[in-house]
Design a binder for these strands. Structure first.
Lengths: 230, 230
DNA sequence: AGCCACAAAATGAACGTTCATTCATTGGAT
DNA sequence: ATCCAATGAATGAACGTTCATTTTGTGGCT
């Protein structure tokens, strides 16, 4: 990061970033063709997510990503403009996909409390694998202004989905109306993120995280529901 | 880390870290000795906290810390063994001091809800300046294993203080007994941390953060209190 | 008081290492 | 024979750390 300078070649962010191919086939077989090309960008991205999540962006060596993806260091630069570009691509490619999932899951459920449970499961990575959320969170905190620029809008969308669920809960009278949906959303996200972090730090079982999340949700929902009118 | 070598003047890790001064006296006066030395270590630490909080550990250049502290690059190495050592010293020197404050404030208040409010105020940095919490949080996530080793125990203490308040609230019947104090503590911390982060990201007014925290605490306390008896 | 010798403290240019990035070469496919 | 994805050693810049030099302060001596 650093280097806001950087003569930066073209750096037309994201759009038409790479080129190469795209295919969907292949994936594994790669018979013998030198056409095993695609799936490579994919593999690199997936590996990068794993490594970034584990060690953080700065502590990750490009060569480690390469090793994890099973390609040579230089190959990374056939698919990405720079190390920064790898991270940015994660935001571009994957996060929107995650948001898709989130929206779909929420839409497929009409009970607001059940919707929040779905969100919790997704955020904890019980649906998609925790690494992505980790990358989002960690890098949102540690990376340069430039990077934040790419992550923040997506993150905002994420929070917005949660806030909407809460707002609709208020509208239907299930939730208290004296709290801002935005604040409620951000604190829910923060609490889950915190639980995830302390859980990761302690190296405990995934089931523990699930249990912790359920307990928190129970507090949170109890506090959010209309005071009861008996 | 690196460099276990180092003839290093004093700076033998953590334990009896310092040398130079230490005492409780001095601090400022330093009469006339060319012993004006002290206060410089202090300045460096304070500057480092500020810069680390703003840019993160990896993105911070030693020269930036030096500039912020108004000393030459080399001077830092008269007081610290390495850049890593600066960060570790923050944990050693400052965090224990913060924990001190926290314990004292909590002890000086007998109402558990009021105790939690105190904790919230402290965590938000309204008492000590938000930077320290930022450094703790961010670096807990991004730094090397070794670094985490120094931070984690302190962080655990922090959480433990909160957990104790909650446990005593349960003991006196104010709070529900069906949640683990540890989980409640971690989620409270996470939520506050998350609010702080999103607040910082949005560049809003400090008063907004305070307001957000109050709203969350209202949800949280409502959810934590025994289901009602009225 | 003025002067000197000495030492601690501070400085910042120079050093060496650690990577991100490049590019000349390879090898498999057509 | 030609092409081009892939390679990984070589390159060069960035940055943590060192150290020869300068500055600052102290006490002794006249």
């Amino acid at each position: 990061m650093g280097s806001e300078r950087h003569k930066n070649r073209q750096s037309n962010r994201g759009h038409e970033t790479r080129a190469v191919s795209h295919g969907q086939v292949d994936e594994r077989g790669q018979a013998g063709g030198h056409e095993r090309a695609e799936g490579k960008r994919e593999r690199i991205l997936a590996s990068a997510i794993r490594v970034f999540a584990e060690k953080g962006f700065y502590a990750t060596r490009v060569s480690e990503i390469a090793k994890a993806a099973g390609v040579a260091d230089g190959t990374i630069y056939l698919y990405f403009k720079s190390k920064d570009d790898v991270l940015i691509s994660i935001f571009e490619d994957r996060l929107s996909r995650l948001l898709e999932v989130l929206r779909k899951e929420v839409a497929g459920e009409s009970n607001v409390e059940r919707q929040l449970e779905k969100i919790v499961d997704i955020q904890l990575g019980l649906i998609d694998g925790r690494d992505l959320a980790e990358v989002l969170t960690v890098n949102l905190r540690q990376s340069s202004k430039l990077l934040k620029q790419y992550a923040e809008p997506r993150f905002r969308e994420y929070l917005c989905i949660i806030a909407n669920v809460i707002a609709s809960g208020q509208a239907e009278g299930t939730f208290r109306k004296d709290v801002s949906p935005g604040i409620a959303a951000r604190s829910l996200w923060g609490a889950l993120d915190g639980l995830t972090m302390t859980w990761a730090l302690s190296g405990a079982e995934p089931s523990n995280l699930r249990k912790a999340a359920r307990q928190f949700l129970s507090i949170y929902l109890a506090g959010l529901k209309t005071p009861r009118q008996t």
